[in-house]
Design a protein around this nucleic acid. Structure first.
Lengths: 194, 194
DNA sequence: TTCGGCATGTAAGTGGTTACATGATTTC
DNA sequence: GAAATCATGTAACCACTTACATGCCGAA
């Protein structure tokens, strides 16, 4: 699916491999993570298929680069790939595997882990909020007439809502952990009565 | 991370490879998807490491099976693996790659895709709600004293909240698509004035 | 002079998917 | 008689990660 992600970016503007990698880290990571070392080989494959074309751009003061542009065939293929309704929705959330076993850890450590995850998600939410503002100031606001770019705003909103929900869950989970831990300590350390 | 997922299940009860695969499809899929063909080799690896041990159980009327049980070393390793705070949170949401490009599709098709995704997430939410009820009737309710299994309820709640948020997003997205599509048709088909 | 940024890559390894193979039993 | 369920697996392939290699520039 990396190809779909790359074409989605190249459909808006030209990129070098390096710039693509930056663009992934800056925004697309929140939907589809990709590492540098994946991107270069994928660009070669896309060019071999004629979906993008690269031009060598000499630069002075810094290394030359190869700028890629999407072709007409590339745009057609992008639409084809996007136009598939997936029959399943598979997630893999590493942190939830920890959560399942969180009761095997000491309460203090359990708290630490959830707090850490909360920070990650909170930060993600802030970055996405920034992107949403940028998009809005660039004219991508709800209610726009139908156009090619309209999907970006929707995707950012999905990220905002799911990360907000996740942060909310973290807070709820912390409360749960605290009450459960309290029950245990009450059992083990009953209050002293003079 | 599949090992973590498998050990998490085996920590609660014994399973054959086949049963594990079923258990994944029935519940863990919503956190960590795994296919049959992955599970068998992984079980061999875990047994070779001494984290689980298998016993051949002869059966009549159906093929013999090999039941796996977690070892003490396995429980220790499970806790070690669970006790890692991840520094990043990488998602890969295929549908959002479609969403980015949804403005390139005809409005009717765009609607169809979001509606399809909504159905998937709605179903996921219902299955998770069923699991939550099961857990609660089995005594896994919020406020329980600290225990090994307490994480399951938390994980199910995370699934409930994120899928609910996703369904909410789908509804919002459908509204957005409708208003954008309406703007377009108003442009192309201005109202007739006698 | 050392580090970070720009720019492009390779190699080795891990993780995961899809499809297939086998074979008995039960259900439609 | 065909299909689904139980049960275990293999093989080929694709996707992704981590680590490394190269080389030049500018800033601290």
């Amino acid at each position: 699916m990396l190809r779909l992600a790359i074409l989605s970016l190249l459909a808006n503007s030209d990129y070098s491999g390096y710039d693509l990698s930056k663009a992934f880290d800056a925004s697309l990571t929140y939907v589809w993570a990709a590492s540098q070392s994946q991107i270069y080989p994928e660009l070669h494959k896309l060019e071999a298929k004629g979906l993008i074309e690269g031009v060598d751009v000499p630069q002075d003061g810094r290394p030359d680069k190869r700028l890629y542009r999407i072709t007409d065939a590339g745009r057609d293929t992008l639409v084809e790939w996007a136009d598939e309704l997936p029959g399943t929705y598979a997630i893999r959330d590493r942190f939830q595997l920890t959560t399942i076993n969180i009761g095997r850890l000491p309460p203090a450590r359990a708290r630490e882990l959830v707090t850490g995850q909360r920070a990650l998600l909170q930060q993600r939410h802030e970055v996405l909020a920034g992107i949403a503002e940028l998009l809005e100031s660039a004219g991508h606001r709800p209610g726009e007439p139908w156009n090619d770019q309209l999907g970006w705003r929707l995707t950012v909103e999905a990220g905002l809502r799911t990360s907000a929900a996740y942060v909310g869950w973290c807070d709820w989970a912390l409360e749960q952990l605290d009450t459960s831990a309290a029950h245990r300590s009450r059992k083990h350390l009953p209050p002293i009565r003079p």
